[in-house]
Simulated assay, not measured.
Amino acid sequence: MTPQVPNLILTAEDLLLAFVLGALIGIERQWRQRTAGLRTNTLVAVGAAIFVDLALRMGGSAEAIRVVAYVVSGVGFLGAGTIMKEGANVRGLNTAATLWGSAAVGACAGAEQWLPAILAAGFVISANTLLRPVVNRINRAPLSETGTELNYTFSLIVPRGQEAALLDILSEKLETAGYPVRDLRMHPFGQSETEMHAILLPSSVDGEVLDRLSAQFSQMPQVRQAFWNQSAGE
């Protein structure tokens, strides 16, 4: 048996472990029809294992550690491709984090740290399965003003060209009511109107006061619509 054969057997064992563990992580993702599923997570784990194993064989532990750092940054770019922003919502963060976990599992396998690789895979799978009911329960719970910082936005829809005239009036009326404006945003609404959003400073807001302000603005001839809403803070 040539000296390379034992190394080749060890490499095969490392890659097989990365393949199996990456596939186990990917099965859960594929079952839930996520962007990165069975094949992607398996390939990420195997790819990380190949790079780390190669560095370990050629340069020893120090070189393997350096390659692990490159694997982490490289998978970061791959994960960024799965993240999509749809309006105020961001999708794909969990998928990107799972890919990162698959790469970590593969890196452990490639470095012949088999027990850490198995443990890491178990924790990644557990995070995606055992914690899901907890997340769903929290998401279904109603928002509490005392436990969650809420953002309040007062909005006007006005004809184009009326924004400047209403800007000072809007700020003055809100400040008089005790709700200073933190930020003001405007964007086109339809073909001939503008939507103005006054984002209020976080505070205890009385909905009846904002309702009265909405009614006052709605009676102004240069205002097409006035309303307010609240959303959970970041």
Rank of each mutant, 00 (worst) to 15 (best):
S144M: 14
A62C: 02
M1K: 12
K85S: 10
V44Y: 11
A103F: 11
L54Y: 13
A96T: 05
V71E: 02
P188S: 15
V205D: 13
A109N: 05
L93T: 14
E234Y: 14
I199F: 08
G122L: 06
A104T: 00
A23C: 04
L143D: 14
V181C: 08
T40R: 06
V72N: 07
G79Q: 00
F154V: 08
A121F: 13
D14Y: 00
I118S: 05
H187D: 11
Q162M: 03
L156G: 03
A80L: 15
N139M: 11
I83T: 10
D53G: 01
D53M: 01
A96G: 10
Q113P: 08
I125S: 09
E28W: 11
F227K: 08
L131R: 10
N139F: 09
P159G: 13
G26N: 04
G79C: 00
R34M: 01
T95R: 00
R34G: 01
S192I: 03
A49T: 12
E172Y: 03
L156Y: 01
I138W: 15
A96K: 03
Q216M: 06
N7S: 08
L143H: 11
N89W: 06
V52R: 09
G79V: 04
A45D: 05
V71R: 00
L210D: 06
V135Q: 14
L38W: 05
L167D: 13
P116F: 09
S204Q: 01
M186S: 13
E63H: 02
G110K: 07
D211C: 08
